[in-house]
Computed example of a mutant assay.
Amino acid sequence: MTMFDDSRERAAEIRKLSIIPELISHHLSIRGDDPALSEYDAKKQEWVTLSFKELWERAQLWHKAITASGLKKGDKAAMLLPNSIDAVCFDQGTLIGGRVPVPLHIIDTAANCAYILNDSETKLLVILNRARWHAIEQAGIDLPHLKTVVFIDDEGEGISSSGVETLGLNEWLARGQESTLPFEGPTEEDLAALVYTSGTTGKPKGVMLTHKNIMSDISALLYNLAPVGGDEWLSFLPLSHTFERTTSYYIGLGMGNKVTFSRGVTRILDDLKHTRPTIMMSVPRVYEKVAAKIKERLKTKGSAAQFVFNSAVNAGYRRFERRNGLAAHNPFINTLDDLLDPFYNKTVRNQIRNSFGGRLRVAVSGGAALSTDVARTLIGLG
C-alpha cells in the first residue's frame, strides 16, 4: 500500500465518525497497540508513551471520576494544565460523558481564569497545583457553581474557605474506579468545547463549538495536511487554542499518529532532535526566529557562503513554484537547478532540515500572517 492510499483510508475512517471520542476509540480494534501520546516525565527523567488502548483506558478512568463528581451531560469542566497526557485524558474523559471541556490558557491571569470559571458555570476544575488555585480563589470573583478542584501535583486540602472540595489526582481517580453511575454520551449537535478568547478587547468571550463543528473542520483539513500512518507530530502550542487542539491533537490522534508533547519553547530544539517529527503546527514568530538565527550565522561566514545559501533558497523556491503551477521558468534554469540540487542539499538544506529533526515534511504556520521573506526562505530550504 502506498502512503497516498494509506492516507486516504485513514481519512475515510475519520469521515465516518461523528463525535470526538471516536477519534481515539475507533483505533482500538485495528491499531490499539500503536503509540499514541508521548511526554517527558520530569520525576522519572525519561520519556513515557501510551498506546491507543492505554490512552483510552486512562480516559475512561477520568470519565468515571467526573461522573462520580456529579457532573451530568452538558455540565462544564475546566482545565488549567500544560500540554500533557493528563490534559488529553481530561478532555476525552469529559467528552465521553457528554460534558463540555473549558480549556483555560496556562499563562492566563488568575482574574481571567476566575472570570471564565464563573461565566461558564464550571462545576469541576483540574489544575496543576494549590498555588494556582489559591490565586484564582483570591481573585475576588465568586464561583458559586464550582464544586470540585483536582490538583495534579499536590494532595487535596479538603473543603476550602470558599466551600469547594479539593482533592489530589490519585484520590479523585480512585473515587471513580468503582463508579457505575449512568451517563449519557454526546451527539454531534452537543457542545464539544467552550473556548474563551484572550479578552484583549474586553472580557473573554466563550466560543461554543459542537462535535459537528470540530469534526467538519477536521474533515476539511485532512485534504491539506494529508497525514499518513507513521507520521509523528510535535505539539508545543497550547491546547487551549483551537488551532493546536484541532490539528496536532484531534487530527494527529485521529489518523493513528504518535503525538509528542514538547517540554516547552525553551527545549524545543532538543525535542525536535529527540522526536524527529514529520508534521508540526506553529505560529509565525517561531519560524521568524529560525530564519533570523540562520541569517545571523550567515553574517559570520563570508560572501561565498551567503551566495550559496541564497542560490539554494532561490532554486528551492523556483521548484516550489513549478510544482504548484505558480510560475514557468526558463528550461535552462530548471535544468541547472536540478543539476545543482544535490550540492544545495548537502551544503545548505540538510543542515537546516537536521535542526528540525531531519524528517519534517509538513510545517504549518497559523494564527497570524507569515512575512513573505521568511516564507520564501523556509520554502526554498524545504
Rank of each mutant, 00 (worst) to 15 (best):
F243R: 05
D154Y: 09
H145G: 02
G140C: 05
D154A: 10
G357W: 00
S120Q: 10
E288F: 02
Q92S: 09
N213M: 06
G156A: 07
L125E: 06
E13K: 11
A87W: 11
I294H: 10
L125M: 13
D270C: 07
T49W: 03
I85D: 01
T2M: 11
L194E: 10
A369T: 09
A42I: 12
P82H: 08
V48N: 08
G254F: 03
A226H: 12
G256I: 05
N350E: 14
H26K: 03
K72M: 09
E232D: 10
I279T: 01
F320Q: 10
G98C: 07
N324D: 12
A312K: 01
G32R: 01
D142Q: 11
K289V: 12
A139E: 04
E171D: 15
S7Q: 15
S365N: 13
L360W: 03
N224C: 09
F356S: 02
P186W: 00
Q351P: 00
N170A: 15
I268C: 09
S219F: 01
A78K: 03
Q45C: 09
F261T: 08
A65W: 00
A363F: 15
Y344R: 02
S84D: 05
R319Q: 14
E39T: 04
Q92D: 09
A363R: 09
I214A: 03
R10F: 09
R318Y: 02
T201I: 02
F332R: 05
W56F: 09
D153E: 15
V290A: 15
V362K: 01
N224H: 14
H329S: 06
L50R: 03
T94S: 11
A59M: 06
A11H: 03
S216A: 14
M280F: 13
M208F: 08
E137I: 01
L191K: 05
E137G: 01
T260N: 14
G380C: 05
R8E: 12
V283Y: 07
T300Y: 06
I96Q: 10
Q177R: 13
K53R: 14
R263L: 06
R359W: 01
T148P: 04
V150D: 02
V290N: 00
E9D: 11
N314R: 09
R175F: 04
G264V: 13
S25V: 04
A36C: 12
